[in-house]
Nucleic acid binder design. Structure first.
Lengths: 238, 238
DNA sequence: GTTTGCGTTGTGGTCTGACCACAGTATATT
DNA sequence: AATATACTGTGGTCAGACCACAACGCAAAC
């Protein structure tokens, strides 16, 4: 069921380009920080049109594998970057938009992953200084709901990063941004934002305390209730 | 840090096209089964070049949102399909190739997700007729290792599908195909394939039995040992 | 009347060539 | 030596021209 790789039996020209680059990646000939050849040269080398090269590079860009910049000098051109978060976000956001991913499934998956993350962190009794900083920032009075949610996202993402699994971190990033629109819209349905945000902040503190104290089950329960409660309040995930 | 959507403040022309289509998706003006306008018309409508439209559509295609076909008639053109598996596979495969995703993290994530899946299925004591069919097919004598692994992949994917979470199913699909090359290469390091495949088949049966009997913890343990054992044998995930 | 065959039409797929904007770099000017 | 200027190479974009392909419609043949 997997696609044919490396061997360029691809029919469309842009797939030839994509396979070629992928082949160089797996062979180690290309890696993070390296520059792709200029589009014109790549087109000439592979005997395809420049537009086909561009389509392939466009795909790589959206998938978070390259960053392109115009101009001249060492910073120009297409550079391998391997930042999976952006690609995962685009993918999930569009899939949710096209109803390929039900919002409820996104919410459930987030709940699942984050519970595991917090359990892992608690088992190691991990210290989370960045988390404390973000929570302090969220305590600022008069913080707009949108800014609060942005910090909230950073907080949860920092937990994923602390867990140290890059795949899960990217997934969490994608999951959150895919329902970001719904989350932001959801706050309009909250009657007393002050009260809600105070509760969320307290729950965050509890989660952090349980993790740093090494209370595995408590951490899991807290994060589970935290997420479940918020989605229940905003009528999401139904 | 999500991207700006819908509002076309995008700088690059292809992003305008992508935003436009995404906007129609979230608005419900486009959905699975619908046709995108012809490339030429879309270019004219949005006042961009056709090549920019093509770049956007190419992205959507790789992400698993549209299927394109030439020719005329109701089957031609770009059709919304929302098949997330392909997009997730491309993304993860390329990220692994570019060392954005360490193989060890992929393996850990798969282990995590599949454990949860089997636990869920066991809680519902789900019946899995498709799983039995696949296992029967894997019992065929003289089956080539590659074919065995293909069926193995289908078996594990069928568990994910049975669990009913489309996000997790897509993730499982992507995770597996991203390390497919390593898995296939790994069998060359197995000294006695007959013995190994017999063990794998037996473990599959045990997993299925535990699930259908509703033994949650047993199912979880079995799937965990099954995956861990295989990766240990093929020296993967190190 | 039915079937067969062929041209028409509209779609994506591709290539070519031509610009533009931009950012470094080299050169000339002061 | 400092500054201004021209040059070069990069991605970004567009326009136009083909091609292959699949469906449709109409006409000819049966």
């Amino acid at each position: 069921m997997s696609d044919a790789q490396i061997v360029s039996l691809d029919r469309r020209a842009w797939e030839i380009v994509l396979s070629h680059i992928e082949g160089q990646l797996v062979a180690g000939a290309l890696g993070p920080g390296d520059h792709l050849p200029p589009e014109r040269q790549l087109a000439a080398d592979l005997a395809v049109g420049r537009s086909s090269v561009r389509e392939a590079i466009r795909v790589l860009e959206v998938l978070g594998l390259v960053r392109t910049s115009s101009g001249s000098g060492p910073n120009s051109g297409a550079v391998i970057v391997a930042t999976p978060g952006g690609g995962m976000s685009s993918l999930m956001r569009l899939q949710v938009a096209a109803t390929g991913f039900p919002v409820a499934d996104v919410v459930k998956t987030r709940l699942l992953l984050e519970t595991v993350i917090c359990g892992d962190l608690a088992e190691r009794a991990a210290k989370l200084p960045i988390g404390h900083e973000l929570l302090d920032a969220m305590d600022r009075p008069g913080l707009a709901p949108e800014d609060f949610l942005a910090l909230d996202q950073q907080f949860h993402l920092s937990l994923a990063e602390a867990a140290g699994n890059q795949v899960i971190t990217a997934m969490m990033s994608g999951l959150r941004s895919s329902i970001d629109g719904y989350v932001v819209t959801g706050i309009s349905g909250v009657s007393d934002w002050e009260h809600t945000s105070a509760r969320l902040r307290a729950e965050h503190r509890n989660i952090l305390r349980a993790i740093e104290s090494g209370y595995v089950l408590t951490a899991r329960t807290h994060i589970n209730d935290h997420i479940t409660g918020y989605y229940a309040e905003t009528r999401l995930g139904e």
